[in-house]
């Protein structure tokens, strides 16, 4: 339902993504991992056309994302309304939450229901409250976003996306801006979404989450998909030296935690 064919992205002379081929099936949970600067966030943002990819194609449920074919066969940037239309079933959650601070939690969730879906105020309110309930924050409906903890803000951001009933959700390092003790509550909500069959693409450094929830893990390095497969295969038997090294670093850091169990975070 989401597919990239031969997609490339350059920033000036620098190639950030090269020849990305990727196909994501309905209800599949795909985690993108890789070192900083490997291009995983750029890949995710390109799949939402927040970055305009240079070569290749991205299809959302069979529709070309971000470009239209002109009559002479060349491709031109889609008009904003067309872009929104192709993205209508896509939701996205950002590292920095990106809630609107001048609107209450409830208003944040209601905004798109009112202005995009054209729902009546009462119906939008009911749906927004029900969605906040789902992420465990119905009692915070009237709070201002900045009064909430990072974990709560991120759950509101998930609810805001979820209320639009997307078919696919993109997560761009959803827990990277959180204090460690707040990571678990966000991962819990994401795990619940995955279990309900949501199609998800997640850029993450949470290897525990990738191991337990992902159907497939993609390892990116220097703009290439170096290796991909089921998480256990990838984590237990990395084929490329680059992935082995990456996982080595991670395990080394975690072994420090295991030496001091009191510091170990409970993910689930």
């Amino acid at each position: 339902m989401l597919e990239a064919r031969g997609m490339s992205k350059r920033f000036g002379e620098h190639t950030v993504l090269q020849d990305i081929n990727l196909s994501i099936q309905r209800s599949e949970v795909v985690c993108l991992i890789g070192p900083s600067g490997s291009g995983k966030s750029t890949l995710l943002r390109s799949l939402a056309f927040l970055e305009n990819y240079d070569d290749g194609e991205v299809f959302v449920e069979g529709e070309l994302l971000g470009y239209d074919r002109a009559s002479d066969g060349r491709r031109v940037r889609s008009r904003p309304s067309r872009l929104s239309d192709v993205r209508r079933n896509m939701g996205m959650v950002f590292q920095q939450f990106n809630l609107w601070p001048h609107l209450s939690v409830l208003e944040n969730v209601m905004e798109a229901l009112l202005r995009v879906r054209g729902m009546k105020k009462d119906a939008a309110r009911r749906l927004a409250l029900a969605t906040l309930e789902k992420v465990g924050l119905a009692e915070k409906a009237d709070a201002w976003p900045n009064r909430l903890s990072g974990g709560q803000q991120q759950r509101v951001a998930i609810a805001r996306s979820l209320a639009m009933s997307p078919a696919i959700m993109l997560f761009d390092e959803p827990t990277s801006a959180l204090d460690p003790e707040l990571v678990g509550e966000v991962l819990q909500v994401m795990r619940q979404l995955a279990e309900e069959g949501m199609t998800m693409v997640v850029v993450t450094h949470e290897m525990g989450f990738a191991a337990r929830v992902a159907d497939r893990v993609l390892f990116l390095d220097q703009g290439h998909i170096v290796e991909q497969g089921p998480p256990m295969t990838l984590f237990k038997n990395p084929q490329s030296p680059r992935l082995a090294q990456f996982l080595g670093n991670y395990l080394e850091r975690n072994s420090l935690f295991e030496a001091a169990p009191a510091l170990n975070r409970v993910d689930d």
Partner: peptide, 24 residues
């Protein structure tokens, strides 16, 4: 990012201006 979030939710440019950007 606030504007990117608005785009992904399907808010038009004008709605984003009048409801998200200008009030702030």
């Amino acid at each position: 990012g606030q504007v990117e979030a608005a785009r992904l939710l399907g808010l038009s440019g004008r709605t984003t201006l009048t409801r998200i950007k200008l009030p702030q």
